[in-house]
Computed example of a mutant assay.
Amino acid sequence: MKQLLNTVYVSDPEVYLALKGKNLNLLKSEESIARIPLHNIEAICTFGYQGASPALMNECLEQNISLTFFSGRGRFRGRLTGELNGNVTLRKKQYRISDDEEKSASISKHMIIGKIFNSEQLLKRNIRDHALRVDGERINRAIERLQASRAAVSECDNLDGLRGIEGNAASIYYSVFGECVLQQKDVFFFRGRNRRPPLDPVNAMLSFAYSLLASETAAALEGVGLDSYVGFLHRDRPGRTSLALDLMEELRPIIADRFILKLINRKQVSSHDFIVKENNAVILKDDARKNFLQLWQKEKQQSITHPFLKEKIPWGLIPHVQALLLARYLRGDLDAYPPILIR
């Protein structure tokens, strides 16, 4: 259980939510493990299938406390809100900004800055930790170009310009991403990003991890009352969770890319985990996909100190915290949206 910005996150799937007086009562194996006064809470998010008591749900409705249910893997299941909840106002603000390209650009640039900064830090960490095993000079040249791209984002005020800078920065980053692969280089080579279909094991895992991250980010956005289909940088397209794609930009390097490199360099995946289909698409075998998902869930439980909140949280809560910060900004509680910047 973690309380952040008046939101309680219950990540243990074995915990049942109940009411005790005017308190949120967390029960595990029918024993109370924590109580929190409801007057200190604006929202509750629970991950798992234990659920909540009817009495607690009724009290949340009375006190206008949103109660959001996610599956253990982070899929959005549903949200209970009272009649005075501000979701309509929040979404109307989101839609107005999405229709205004200048305002959309002002938010998008923070997300792109976060993506480029985190890409730089992943590469810097690779040089620092493995100086004798990588081409440090080549990586440093890429880092300098990324820093220039990040400075250009700060000066840009239109969406087309931001997309151009972001695309160029992604190309620079991926041009040296293969240097971060330290083990099994004959199998896990990386010569650039390819997808639809992925043509090598690294791209197959990146695509799978990105799809998981997009799904979890969309769930996080729905959990705070935002419309995951209406974005700022990514424009509206039927069936595309555009706002989730916006928000996950800054999360790709620190969550998905970092995770894939860890799997490869710790030899938790091998050539036997993949098959090549008739169209040359490379995909994970069924058993390997299950193992991937188990390791993904385990990684989400690892702790990190959030640089903006200055509090330790599990990795798996990062999309939820960033969605909450974005909602706070749109409501006017923050002067700007703070992307997560991991050193």
Rank of each mutant, 00 (worst) to 15 (best):
C180I: 04
L26Y: 00
S11E: 00
Y337E: 00
G21H: 02
N158E: 14
L330Q: 07
V176Y: 04
G86L: 15
R145K: 15
I113N: 05
S270A: 01
A152D: 09
I255M: 03
L247M: 10
R289G: 00
N25P: 00
L245C: 11
S29C: 13
D287E: 15
G332M: 12
L132R: 03
N194G: 07
R96L: 08
I260A: 03
K103P: 01
T7E: 10
G332C: 14
K310S: 03
E299Q: 12
A151M: 04
K310T: 07
A43G: 14
M111A: 07
L326M: 12
N194Q: 07
F70Y: 15
Q302R: 12
L122P: 04
L5N: 05
S71Y: 08
K22H: 11
A220N: 08
R96P: 03
R163W: 01
G86Q: 15
I260M: 04
G82M: 02
A336H: 13
L67V: 13
V8Y: 01
V134C: 00
E166I: 10
I33P: 13
E14V: 01
K2V: 06
K93S: 11
I165T: 09
I41D: 02
D186T: 13
A281L: 08
K298S: 05
V15R: 11
R73E: 14
N87L: 10
I36M: 14
A218W: 04
K277W: 10
E299D: 13
D286R: 15
L325V: 08
F47W: 12
R125H: 07
K103D: 15
L26I: 05
R141K: 09
R145Y: 02
R75Y: 06
P197M: 15
A336V: 11
N118L: 06
L17T: 05
A204R: 07
I165L: 12
L122E: 02
A214E: 09
K277T: 07
S149R: 06
N58S: 13
I255D: 01
G114K: 08
Y229Q: 12
V181F: 03
E179W: 14
S242I: 06
E311W: 01
G167H: 09
V153M: 04
H130W: 04
Q302V: 09
E299H: 08
A18E: 10
K20V: 00
L132A: 12
I116M: 07
I172N: 04
A218S: 12
R35N: 15
I283F: 14
G114M: 10
D129Y: 02
Q322Y: 01
D273R: 10
F274C: 04
I275S: 11
Y337Q: 01
I275K: 14
G231D: 02
G114A: 12
P338S: 05
D12F: 13
I97S: 06
S228P: 12
R240Q: 11
L324C: 11
N265E: 01
N23E: 10
S149I: 01
N168L: 15
D99R: 00
R191I: 13
R96W: 00
V202P: 09
